[in-house]
Write a protein that binds this DNA or RNA. Structure first.
Lengths: 260, 260
DNA sequence: AAGTGGTCTAGACCACTTT
DNA sequence: AAGTGGTCTAGACCACTTC
């Protein structure tokens, strides 16, 4: 935001550069720009699927060079928060779109192509959140939560049974009907109807035995080995907004992971 | 490797830029530089843990600007092939070093800190590779392979039982004694003793029931739910060099994964 | 002081898309 | 033709490490 000659202490938008004295909150310019862009994403100034201003435009707005804006967007792109398209522009990432749909679903068929799963909503209820749920979602004990139970079918075969816990305050008008009639990934609905984008998640996996209830739902024997998957999803600002407890049938599917 | 005025068709080290006519193998300069650096890594010109030439030096060597070298190294760094250290230089990644050790091991204790696991080598044998193994390792059917069986203990508790299949041609002098006396991660030994670096891997997970053999090894009941993990590891050039079939006990541990 | 990676700028040109 | 992201250069200065 200032030529190289005038050293750092210029008028920074977020934090200023540190030089002589102690400057505990220093961060490079492009990180500050990245934070500003993320604020605009979070605030909804640019919505999922939309075009954000061009690099040149952003450089003018923030009074930095295009290269600096570029480096900021590079990182946002690496984190899947935006998508670049040469000649067209940079778009806000969205859970609609085939390309990135189901990017959190790592269950693959052992042989053949992955097809789009079908859903059956079993139940949607609102209740005062159990302690383990409110603790993970970082809300007050006893606060309202929504619990969705559903089955997912792969090629007609019931393969995933899950409980999805959401903060009631955010997901107000969520009903079984609304969920049932919605086509496409659930995160797409969360995004457009409730303004909540899932941008990151962590999963914990364990092998467990199917109990009677899940055995019946998933059409496997009681005591069959199944994969227990607990997922916590986060939106902007590292805020947890979903706890998902799932059982995957891994007889003819597997959980796929890439390490590097 | 040429000023901007002279367009692309200059003297490129790998591929030349495409312009007028059809140029099927075009790739940007920094990708070509990246490929050259990777060749030097693969050939052992710079060995794991060593310092590679500085950006300025590489820029001179390849006759490009420092920025272009920088972008090439950026990608190598993102792929964990090299590690940058400000003020010191850029180092070839290594499986020794606490920071990156066990980076392919995603099994975490449900509570508490992860401690370094202990190994017990059960068996090391050489044999003509079974079809499923040679197919995955991309070697000829019946070629010699090494099979290592071992148990890993977490805080003294047997938790992982695995079979590790390696191409016999690469791992010639591998013996049970050599493995047993070696401290630290096995990939470290592979790296220094056999010049083979694992740089990427894919895993497939399934929930299964413990059979008699593994139940005895892992001190669990026959029919207990355990996690089956099949890993294929790759070295430079996408060459598969390890097939690992493991059973993880997930009673008080879980497989941890980050999604984004 | 010298060398390394890290940040920032300014400007040129290329490849792709839309008008 | 105009606009967008993608590549490349050249040069300045900063932060960190070592001598």
């Amino acid at each position: 935001m200032n030529p190289t000659v005038t050293p750092p202490p210029a008028a920074g938008p977020a934090a200023s550069s540190g030089q002589g004295a102690a400057s505990p909150t220093f961060s490079p310019l492009y990180q500050q720009i990245k934070a500003l862009i993320m604020q605009s994403l979070q605030s909804g100034e640019w919505k999922p699927g939309e075009l954000i201003p061009s690099e040149v435009e952003l450089a003018l707005r923030y009074k930095v060079s295009q290269g600096t804006v570029r480096k900021a967007i590079d990182e946002l792109s690496a984190e899947n928060l935006v998508v670049r398209r040469q000649g067209k522009g940079t778009f806000v990432a969205t859970h609609h779109e085939a390309r990135v749909q189901f990017r959190f679903l790592k269950l693959m068929p052992d042989a053949g192509e992955a097809h789009q799963p079908e859903n059956r909503i079993v139940e949607v209820k609102r209740l005062r959140g159990p302690a383990e749920v409110t603790r993970v979602l970082d809300i007050k004990a006893g606060d309202s939560v929504v619990c969705i139970r559903r089955i997912q079918y792969f090629d007609g075969v019931p393969t995933i049974a899950e409980e999805i816990w959401l903060p009631g305050a955010i997901f107000k008008g969520l009903t079984a009907e609304r969920l049932a009639e919605y086509k496409g990934p659930m995160y797409g609905l969360f995004e457009t109807e409730f303004g909540t984008q899932m941008i990151r998640a962590t999963e914990k996996l364990k092998a467990v035995l199917a109990d009677e209830a899940t055995a019946a739902q998933l059409n496997v024997a009681v005591g069959a080995p199944v994969l227990g998957v607990e997922r916590v999803s986060y939106t902007y600002g590292e805020r947890p907004v979903e706890l998902r407890r799932a059982i995957y049938v891994t007889a003819s599917h597997h959980y796929h992971n890439e390490l590097s």
